Simulated assay, not measured.
Amino acid sequence: MKAYWIAHVDVTDPEQYQQYTQRAPAAFKAYGGRLLARGGRSEALEGRPTPQRSVVIEFESYEQALACYRSAEYQQACCHRQGVATAEVIIVEGVD
């Protein structure tokens, strides 16, 4: 069953954040992730205010999504996000 990585991100240093966005896609690809949405137009209809960026990545399984997040490749990319952005990352299993 497919799984989805959903992230809401607020960036405080766009220039430094580019270091993350240049590295993270390689980890997604290595684990079969497919970007479905990445920072396009959005509007919060309920809950917290609209984050600056929303990201949705599809994986073939929940386990692959978790493995990607926990991988050395992704964690190295995360080092470039920490301190320059606030992120909420959720992995959710899809429906059959």
Rank of each mutant, 00 (worst) to 15 (best):
M1K: 06
S71N: 08
P14R: 02
V9T: 13
Y17K: 00
Y31R: 05
G32D: 03
M1A: 12
T12P: 05
S54F: 08
S54L: 11
R81S: 10
I6S: 06
Q64D: 14
G33F: 11
A65G: 02
A65H: 04
Y17S: 04
P25D: 04
A72N: 13
G32P: 12
I91L: 09
E60L: 05
E58W: 07
Q75V: 03
R70M: 10
Y74N: 02
V95S: 14
A37I: 02
F28E: 01
R53V: 15
Q82R: 14
R48I: 09
V56C: 11
S42G: 10
R38I: 02
A26M: 10
Q18R: 14
Q22W: 02
T21E: 07
A85F: 07
V11C: 05
R48V: 13
A26W: 11
D10R: 00
R41S: 13
R23V: 14
C79I: 15
Y20A: 01
V56Y: 09
E58M: 01
R38P: 00
T86F: 08
Q18S: 12
E58S: 05
Y17A: 00
D96A: 13
A3Q: 01
D96R: 11
A24M: 08
W5R: 03
Q75E: 04
I6D: 05
K29I: 09
R34V: 15
T21G: 00
R53I: 15
A87C: 06
Q18W: 06
R23W: 08
G47P: 06
D96Y: 09
C79V: 15
A7F: 05
H80V: 02
P49M: 01
E93H: 09
Y74C: 04
S42Q: 15
A3T: 04
A44W: 05
R53K: 15
Q64I: 04
R23D: 14
L35R: 04
Y20T: 00
I57P: 10
C78K: 10
P25H: 00
F59W: 05
V89N: 14
V92G: 08
